[in-house]
Structure formats: C-alpha cells, structure tokens
C-alpha cells in the first residue's frame, strides 16, 4: 500500500543515471567495434560482420587462454572462499589479538597488484627465491620447482598469488555476514548439546548464504576477468603458457587489431553473463529455500 511512496523510485535514480550514462552506455556501444575491422594502421573503420568472431575461434592458440581462464576462475573461487571462511570463523571471536590478525590477513587486498607481482616473482625464483629456500630448510627440497618458469606450473603459481591476495577479502565479507547470525540461536543450540560442526552447518552456514553468494559470485567474476596478477607475475609466460583471455585481449590491442580484440572481449563477456546468471539463479534458489 505504502510501498511505492516509502520506497520511491527516486532513490534508485542517482545511482542508475550515473551508472547508465557513464558506464553502461559507452561500454556497450564499444561492442560495435567487434563487428568492424578497426585497427591501428588505417583510419577508416569498416563494418565486417562476424568475421572477427570467426577468426577468434579459428585460432587454436586462443583455446589455451580460455582454458586457463576457466581453471583460474574455478580454482581460485573455491580456495578463496574456503580459506576466507576458515579465517572468518577463527577470527570471529575468542582470540584476543583478532583485530590485529584480521588486519594482517586483509593486508594483501590493499597492496597494488603490481607490487604483489614483483614480490612474488622474487619469492618464486628457483635459485634465490624464499619458497624453494623454505622447502629446502624443512627437508622438502625435492619439491622445489621453477614455479613461474615451468610452463605447466606457471598458471597454478598465479592462482596461488591470487588466493594469497584475495582470501582476506572473502574473510571480511564472511565476518560481516557472521554479525547477522543471532547469538541466541547459538546459545540455544549449545544448551541442546549441539557440537561445533553441528552448529556451523545447521545455524551459521544458512545465515551466511548471502555472504557465500556474494563471495562466490565476485570470486568467479574476478577470476574470469583476471588480468593484473598474471600480467605482473608472468605476463602470460613462459611462451603463452599462462595466458588468460584478458591478457590476450590486451596483447591484441598492443598489436593494433582493435576489432579482433574487442570481439575476444565480447566473447568473454558472454561467458561471464551466462556463468554469473547461472550462479545467481542457483544461489538465490537455495537462499529462498533456506529462508
């Protein structure tokens, strides 16, 4: 009855106008270039239909970067969320120095990717890096690797950096979510004799579902859009072994094939739309069921 008056559309307007005019419209307009031969060497932009898309799929080397991107998104999403949840549960209460520890675990989030990439290049160095040095010290020297120089390992080492960097972000969202769990329910369950795991699964997790949705969706999106970390750490190398789609797009831009590069990023966009909508559908359904 009072809904439309109390929840006025005028509240949506500022955010929407800003977003629509300065972000959505220009960037969707940009998609038009994927249908053109726009390139560095000529001034005229000619409409060429779907030729760029055909060329993208005809080039097998693009499949490596698509595969890398999908693996990267899958693996980092899961690990970031699981580690983030573990950290949040551990640092939610009880520990005296929790504030300090939270700051420490969140710190990587605020460091620019460029710095992170430079530091980890050093850590991963097979001869002078501290990772192999550490393995030697604890007697696991046999496991030391050329972490970013081995084409089979490079993308996985990149995932490691991303998890290192962003698990703390998941932690913060989970911590914020944990504040929504009513204390009384935990207390009541404690009196009923439920143990830690029971309480976690029956009470905490259902209340955390919105946080899980947020984290997973953001993890998958940032995983599929990954660029900075790989760019600063391996630049897609060695060879093109750790190349991800946005890096291919960037490199194609560098070469000057703007139309082709736009087509690639449109394809990534379509992937992202399908996967995100699918995830929102799945998560909102389970949220509704639980609620």
């Amino acid at each position: 009855m009072y809904t439309s008056k109390l929840y006025s559309w005028k509240f949506v307007l500022p955010a929407f106008l800003l977003f629509f005019a300065l972000f959505l419209v220009p960037n969707l307009m940009g998609f038009y270039y994927s249908l053109t031969n726009w390139n560095a060497m000529s001034d005229q932009v000619k409409f060429i239909g779907l030729d760029n898309f055909r060329d993208v799929f005809a080039d097998k080397s693009n499949f490596t970067s698509i595969y890398n991107t999908l693996m990267f998104a899958l693996v980092t999403s899961i690990f970031k969320a699981v580690i983030g949840l573990g950290l949040a549960l551990m640092l939610n209460e009880g520990i005296k120095s929790k504030n300090f520890l939270r700051t420490i675990f969140f710190m990587p989030v605020i460091i620019s990717n460029l710095i992170v990439g430079l530091i980890f290049q050093q850590i991963y160095n097979p001869d002078t890096g501290i990772l192999n040095g550490f393995l030697d010290v604890v007697g696991l020297g046999a496991f030391s690797q050329a972490w970013i120089a081995d084409p089979k390992l490079a993308i996985w080492s990149g995932m490691g950096v991303e998890i290192w960097k962003a698990a703390g972000f998941n932690m913060v969202i989970f911590l914020a979510g944990l504040q929504m769990v009513p204390k009384e329910m935990h207390e009541a369950a404690g009196i009923d004799g439920a143990n830690y795991w029971n309480k976690l699964i029956k009470i905490t997790i259902p209340f955390l579902l919105p946080s899980i949705t947020i984290n997973m969706l953001l993890n998958v999106i940032s995983g599929l859009k990954v660029f900075d970390v790989i760019f600063a750490l391996t630049n897609g190398g060695p060879g093109r072994a750790s190349e991800v789609v946005n890096l291919t797009v960037f490199n194609q831009f560098g070469l000057g094939t703007y139309g082709y590069a736009t087509a690639l990023s449109v394809i990534l966009f379509v992937f992202l739309i399908i996967i995100s909508i699918g995830m929102v559908k799945i998560f909102t359904r389970s949220e509704v069921k639980e609620g």
């Binding site: 897609g236 060879g239 093109r240 082709y260």
Partner: peptide, 30 residues
C-alpha cells in the same frame, strides 16, 4: 613469446615463423 615456447618444446622453429606470419596476416588483411 613464440621463441620462449619453442625453447620449452611447444613450437618448432617453423611454427614460430608461421605464428608470426599469422599475426601479420591479420593486420595486412585489416
């Protein structure tokens, strides 16, 4: 990058050159 790939056994010398040609063909046709 193509040469790195060759060193690591991913491409043959000939394939390196073919890859260069392919990139160039894209710009020439554009």
């Amino acid at each position: 990058k193509y040469i790195q790939d060759m060193m690591l056994g991913g491409l043959s010398p000939k394939q390196v050159l073919e890859s260069i040609d392919r990139d160039r063909a894209k710009l020439f046709s554009a």
